[in-house]
Computed example of a mutant assay.
Amino acid sequence: MNPKDLIGRFQQMLDQLPLADFSQPARQMLTSRLGQLLQEANLVSREEFEAQTEVLNRTRLRLEELEQRLNALIDHQASCPAAPEDPAAEK
């Protein structure tokens, strides 16, 4: 849920309370303060969190694939006999 939705739900809860319980200035103050707290907390929406989690999972899988390929190349290089040196290169 994004911060605006949370503020909206909070406002709806306040609107359902009898006027004797909260005066309008108190409601405005609470709503305003909740908005400030949400901004200070650097909250992200559930959708943004899930999107970033998906990106992270894909990146992790790609990294694992690249590590496997690198290890296969290293193993292949270690198993190949060393190429004979070119005697013409030494002259």
Results as ranks from 00 to 15, higher is better:
53 T>M: 03
22 F>T: 13
27 R>K: 12
46 R>D: 05
20 A>I: 00
59 T>A: 10
87 P>F: 15
24 Q>E: 07
66 L>H: 00
20 A>M: 02
70 L>R: 13
62 R>Y: 04
47 E>I: 08
23 S>K: 14
79 S>P: 00
22 F>L: 11
86 D>R: 07
86 D>Y: 10
60 R>P: 01
23 S>C: 05
33 R>I: 05
24 Q>H: 14
68 Q>D: 03
65 E>T: 11
84 P>K: 15
51 A>T: 08
39 Q>Y: 05
26 A>G: 13
16 Q>S: 05
62 R>G: 03
48 E>F: 14
53 T>F: 01
52 Q>G: 03
17 L>T: 06
58 R>Y: 11
71 N>Q: 09
29 M>E: 04
27 R>N: 01
73 L>M: 11
69 R>F: 06
81 P>G: 15
27 R>A: 04
35 G>V: 03
41 A>P: 03
73 L>Q: 15
86 D>I: 14
19 L>V: 06
45 S>M: 03
69 R>K: 08
66 L>C: 08
33 R>Q: 07
29 M>T: 11
24 Q>R: 15
76 H>M: 02
19 L>N: 08
81 P>N: 11
47 E>G: 12
22 F>C: 13
76 H>V: 01
23 S>A: 04
15 D>R: 12
67 E>S: 09
53 T>R: 14
68 Q>L: 08
18 P>M: 00
30 L>I: 14
36 Q>K: 15
58 R>G: 13
65 E>K: 05
39 Q>N: 14
86 D>L: 13
77 Q>L: 07
88 A>E: 06
15 D>A: 10
20 A>P: 01
19 L>G: 09
67 E>Q: 10
